[in-house]
Simulated assay, not measured.
Amino acid sequence: AVKIPVTVKCRIGVDEQDPEPALDALTDGVFDAGADALWVHARKAWLEGLSPKENRDIPPLDYNRVYRLKVRKHNEFIGINGGIQSIEEAQKHLGHVDGAMLGRAAYHTPGILAGVDAAFYGVQSEPFDFAALIDAMADYAARHIEQGGRLGHVTRHMVGLFHGLPGARRYRQILSTDATKPGAGPDVLKTAYAAVEFGGAAAEAA
C-alpha cells in the first residue's frame, strides 16, 4: 500500500472486446484493488492494425459509454479523456462525470488554460502576463543553450501558445524557421512574440 492517491487510466476496450462488460470488469478490479480514481479515454485501443499515433484519432469516441460507467459507479471518481478541445467541452462533460482531461489540446493550445480558474472555480484573476512568461522562457532557453542545448528544444513546445490571436501565424513561422537554425538565441523568441497582437496592438517583451 502507498500513502499517495493512486489513479488508473484506460481505454473503453481493446480490439474486439465488447466495451460494456470489458470496461465494467476492469473498473471493478481497479477499485477493488484500492485505486482512488479511474480516467477513461473514450476510445477503444486497437493493438492489431493501428499504430499508437493512429489509435489517438481513428477509433471512434464513445463518451456515452463513460457516462454509463459513472452511473453504475456513482460513488467512485470517474474522469473522461479523449478529443476534448476546449474549456467549454470540458464543462459539458462535467455534467456527467467527475473530471475532464485536456490532453493534446493543452499542449497544442496552452493559452486556453489561462481561463481554467474563472471557468471552474469562479476566480476572476488578472489578465495573464504573457510578456513575463516570454521573458521567463527566454531566460530558461538561454540556460538551456549554455548547457549545450538548442533554442528549438524549448520553443517547439510553445508554437501553439497564441493560437487564435492576430499575429499567431507569424509567431509560429518565426519559431518554426528561425528558432531551429544553428546558433539561434533567445532573442528569436522575443522577436516572434512581438508579432502577436493583443487588442489590436503588437506585443512588447522586455
Rank of each mutant, 00 (worst) to 15 (best):
I4M: 12
A192D: 06
F31G: 09
A45S: 11
V196E: 10
G49D: 01
P182H: 08
F31P: 06
L161D: 08
R143H: 13
W39Y: 13
N75G: 12
G34F: 02
A179D: 03
A206W: 14
A206L: 14
A202F: 15
L23E: 09
D117G: 00
A42C: 14
A201W: 05
W46G: 00
P52S: 04
L23C: 05
I58K: 15
E146Y: 07
K53W: 06
L189R: 03
L113Q: 07
A106S: 10
G185N: 13
A22S: 14
H153L: 07
R11Q: 03
F162M: 09
S176Y: 05
A90G: 06
R104I: 03
I84G: 02
E204Q: 15
A205T: 13
V188I: 08
D178A: 12
I78Q: 09
A1I: 04
I84D: 02
K44R: 14
L113P: 00
A114N: 07
G200T: 07
P59N: 11
K70A: 06
F128M: 02
H163I: 03
K73W: 15
G34N: 03
Y171M: 12
L189Q: 04
L189F: 02
H157T: 07
R65Q: 15
K92Y: 03
P186W: 05
G103L: 08
G183Q: 08
A131V: 05
D28F: 14
E16F: 10
I87A: 01
R72Y: 07
D178C: 00
G160K: 04
M158A: 08
P59M: 14
A106F: 06
R68M: 13
D24M: 13
L165N: 13
T109I: 12
L102D: 02
D135C: 06
R43P: 12
A142Q: 13
A136L: 11
S86T: 11
H93F: 02
P186G: 02
A136M: 13
F120N: 02
Q85K: 13
R150D: 12
Y171F: 15
V97M: 10
G199N: 11
E126T: 03
A142V: 05
S125P: 00
E197F: 09
I80L: 12
E54P: 02
A205R: 12
M101V: 15
I174F: 09
D98Y: 13
E89P: 00
I78N: 04
K73T: 03
Y193M: 07
D135A: 14
L69E: 12
V40C: 01
A22L: 01
Q173W: 14
L102K: 01
L151W: 10
G164L: 11
T7A: 12
A33V: 04
G164C: 09
S176Q: 14
G122I: 01
I112W: 06
F77N: 13
E197I: 04
R104C: 06
H144F: 09
K92D: 02
W39L: 11
A136R: 15
A1Y: 07
S86D: 00
Q91V: 11
A192H: 07
C10N: 08
D178R: 11
N75T: 14
P5M: 11
A37S: 11
T177S: 08
Y121C: 04
G95N: 10
R156D: 04
Y121L: 09
A179W: 03
